[in-house]
Design a protein around this nucleic acid. Structure first.
Lengths: 379, 379
DNA sequence: CTGTTAGCGCATTCAC
DNA sequence: GTGAATGCGCTAACAG
């Protein structure tokens, strides 16, 4: 009969040779079978305290860790959730990822993140790769749920999934805001301030359902106010080129008194572009964004925007797929996150305002003639 | 001898029953061995066009995809790189992730991202989990390379790795900027503008080597200019609570004319806090940041800062571990990314400046008395 | 050119 | 309580 010590000598095949220790090494060192090691380390099944301790000691001395890929192959679960968003660099998605991460981690899952750079092929490629990696679930923000091959693929596979930011309850569970309704609030805000000539600024309008929904809500509400549809200002270049193109775009539309930007990053970029043109925000041009990212409140003037809760969307999306992984029934297929219009210094009364009915003229309204500069230069 | 069709009937065990098809199903459908399927799908080894096509057809009809976990178990490689950063929500890390992602993807690798929330235990936990997942390599930004258990663990395991933002060439390959030298530039900039009473603002100073290196470079250079060491303003709360604590912190130190913030996010938050206190930036308080994130250029006044290239750091870190994965020799153990001081509206001449030597007094310097409010309210 | 075989590390059934 | 045996999906030898 072999003592534990003797066996310990006999093994020595795997551990030191190459890479990390395997469960066999631990079993050999502890003088037991691999099944026991598995049971101890997983806390499954009964074990005597004696062996329990021996296994733990052995594992510690080898600083052994069960291999996830071995387990995954066996259990067909990876404890991993895939996530693809248009851009990690956009704070709005970064915040959502934060929420996702927290929820996933709390449930013992890791996140594999992929960025699609707002393109359809990278979107599909990312999902394909993720499927190959056998993620247990998927959280996506796609360019357009109605036509997304990526989403189709996931649905075919029957993998637990949820959309973030996208709103398409009939296609997939989603965590989003009601973009159209939110955009209507923006229209109201502009109209309240006497604006009539408005533009809608979007990045790659054609490939973002969110942009379109916001545009439509905005336009529809404007028409209800008896105004014309907003002018669509589209930038479909690389986000990096924004600084180049935005100023000329704004310059071509100087007659506009207000611009609703499809998201806060764009709105901020527009504010910067306006400065380039010596247009003063909000006096010469009012700007409203969408999302409510933190930096919007740090700039001067502060950015008027639709305040949403990206982190909550991430959390909600995560909960949806986590619930599905636990085989729970998902109650609502659609998590509508709260939102509200958040006033800010970037939106003020229109200088061309002609309305005499002072009913809504409660906000501080600068006289038609303005001082040459609001702050930086002295006169 | 069985025809392909007959065999196709015989299988039917796995495919439709449960989950996805396996390589066996494809082999059966194509009427060949699994090895051939593997060869065709991987483009390894020779295959006749005939079987090649049959396999492809079979795979397509089952919409089969090779399982990464099967492959990983066999090859002991996961084509996956783990990454842990303090916070996904900080744009500086988001940008770095962007660079990382691009490089990793180009090399056929995925990224598993984890946030440590600037805490040591989450840092260690994240790395442990990542090791369990058998990532091929690791890219980290740790709180302090000298003492990080997480980094120790990785080094013990002998896994290819690289640090981002951290600068500790003796411990691990790293992609960073020379924080101390960069901070000296900031000191010069402040002194050039006649500032003498300066503060250094940091978040969790004790647990960030980057903060400390910047503080030291800043302080050392100030002393070379014959000035006192900067006052250390430390915020060690949750980043979310910044808005609460920062104003009172600044209020306690009204005598300071300039503040060097450890990073741009903090600097932006400080600018916001200053507004809360009706302190005008830069006239009442000059602020300089560090990193050079894009939003810094979108705010008004623009943020003076040290311009770095986070994306390049991500790329460099990725290249380092990718090279190691290809068994290439890493040339330099340390990739110093370029940086430069970037002037901005948030830093102006000190109003208390007593120097008569008007040599550098080129910047527009407002008179000691200012209008009551900069912009938003009318008087 | 192609099929058979042997594990990779693990969880799990089934005896003991 | 515990161990031996099986197979998850795949790639790499090795025969043929």
């Amino acid at each position: 009969m072999l003592t534990a010590d003797t066996r310990a000598v006999i093994k020595s095949t795997n551990t030191s040779d190459r890479g990390r220790a395997s469960i066999k090494d631990v079993a050999a060192l502890a003088g037991c079978g691999i099944a026991t090691v598995s049971r101890v380390l997983n806390g499954s099944g009964p074990t005597s305290v004696a062996t329990h301790d021996r296994v733990l000691a052995a594992a510690a001395s080898l600083d052994f860790q069960l291999s996830d890929i071995g387990r995954s192959l066996r259990t067909q679960r990876t404890r991993t959730i895939g996530c693809v968003v248009p851009s990690i660099a956009n704070p709005v998605f970064a915040q959502a990822l934060q929420g996702l991460q927290r929820a996933a981690r709390a449930a013992g899952h890791q996140l594999i993140v992929s960025g699609s750079n707002y393109t359809l092929d990278q979107e599909l490629e990312a999902v394909t790769t993720l499927l190959g990696k056998q993620v247990d679930g998927l959280v996506l923000t796609v360019s357009d749920p109605e036509t997304s091959q990526a989403l189709d693929l996931v649905r075919e596979r029957g993998l637990p999934h949820a959309l973030m930011f996208n709103h398409a309850p009939s296609l997939a569970p989603c965590a989003s805001v009601d973009n159209a309704s939110a955009a209507r609030l923006v229209a109201d805000a502009f109209v309240d301030q006497g604006h009539r000539l408005l533009g809608f600024l979007a990045l790659r309008f054609g490939s973002s359902d969110r942009s379109r929904q916001r545009f439509e809500g905005f336009g529809a509400r404007l028409q209800e106010h008896g105004l014309e549809a907003p002018v669509l200002l589209e930038v479909d270049d690389e986000p990096a080129h924004l600084a180049d193109h935005l100023p000329s775009l704004l310059d071509e539309h100087r007659y506009l008194t207000g611009i609703f930007a499809s998201n806060d990053m764009l709105a901020l970029a527009a504010m910067q572009a306006a400065r380039t043109l010596s247009l003063r925000v909000p006096y010469d041009l009012s700007i409203v964004g969408f999302d409510g990212i933190a930096i919007g409140q740090m700039v001067e003037p502060t950015l008027a925007t639709v305040q949403t809760d990206p982190e909550a969307m991430g959390t909600a999306a995560a909960e949806t797929v986590l619930a599905a992984l636990r085989n729970e029934q998902v109650s609502s297929s659609c998590d509508q996150t709260r939102f509200h219009f958040r006033p800010g210094g970037s939106l003020s009364r229109c200088r061309d305002d002609q309305t005499d009915s002072g009913e809504v003229a409660a906000s501080p309204l600068p006289s038609p003639t303005h001082p040459r500069e609001p702050s930086l230069k002295k006169d």
